[in-house]
Simulated scan of single mutants.
Amino acid sequence: MKRLIDVARRFHDDENGAAMVEYSILIGIVAAASIVAIIAIGGWVGSQFTGLCANLSGKGVSSTGGAGGTC
């Protein structure tokens, strides 16, 4: 009976699993925030290029090297 109580006490005092779960949650939050930031920045950059194309009114350089390219 004393051995069972001793094993239960050691199991209760072990916090390695709890720390691993906390770090896993923290890594998940950082990863999600990074993905959201990348998507937001990508949308902003895309809108900047769309605005630039609208300002040029389609008169940019085309892929063949001449004027009159499309966006």
Results as ranks from 00 to 15, higher is better:
residue 8 A to H: 09
residue 68 G to P: 08
residue 49 F to R: 11
residue 9 R to I: 13
residue 27 I to H: 13
residue 31 A to P: 00
residue 55 N to F: 14
residue 47 S to C: 07
residue 5 I to Q: 02
residue 23 Y to G: 07
residue 22 E to W: 05
residue 50 T to Y: 09
residue 10 R to F: 04
residue 63 S to V: 12
residue 61 V to H: 10
residue 61 V to P: 11
residue 48 Q to K: 15
residue 51 G to Q: 14
residue 65 G to R: 10
residue 8 A to R: 09
residue 57 S to P: 01
residue 53 C to H: 11
residue 41 I to K: 06
residue 12 H to E: 03
residue 70 T to L: 01
residue 61 V to K: 14
residue 28 G to N: 13
residue 17 G to S: 12
residue 31 A to D: 00
residue 68 G to W: 12
residue 38 I to Y: 09
residue 32 A to E: 00
residue 36 V to Q: 01
residue 58 G to S: 14
residue 23 Y to K: 15
residue 29 I to A: 06
residue 45 V to Y: 01
residue 8 A to E: 11
residue 61 V to L: 15
residue 51 G to T: 11
residue 68 G to Y: 11
residue 62 S to H: 06
residue 36 V to T: 01
residue 27 I to L: 08
residue 67 A to H: 11
residue 61 V to E: 14
residue 57 S to W: 04
residue 35 I to L: 02
residue 68 G to R: 11
residue 56 L to H: 13
residue 71 C to F: 02
residue 32 A to S: 05
residue 33 A to N: 09
residue 63 S to M: 10
residue 22 E to R: 15
residue 24 S to P: 03
residue 44 W to E: 00
residue 43 G to A: 13
residue 42 G to T: 10
residue 13 D to G: 00
residue 15 E to G: 01
residue 4 L to D: 06
residue 37 A to E: 07
residue 65 G to V: 07
residue 43 G to H: 04
residue 28 G to I: 08
residue 18 A to C: 02
residue 50 T to E: 12
residue 22 E to M: 11
residue 16 N to H: 10
residue 33 A to P: 02
residue 68 G to S: 03
residue 17 G to V: 10
residue 50 T to D: 13
residue 7 V to K: 13
residue 65 G to A: 09
residue 26 L to Y: 14
residue 52 L to Q: 15
residue 41 I to E: 07
residue 58 G to C: 15
residue 24 S to V: 09
residue 26 L to K: 15
residue 57 S to M: 10
residue 24 S to L: 12
residue 53 C to K: 05
residue 46 G to N: 15
residue 44 W to I: 01
residue 50 T to M: 09
residue 33 A to H: 02
residue 12 H to F: 04
residue 13 D to I: 00
residue 23 Y to R: 15
residue 40 A to K: 06
residue 34 S to Y: 00
residue 1 M to I: 10
residue 53 C to Q: 14
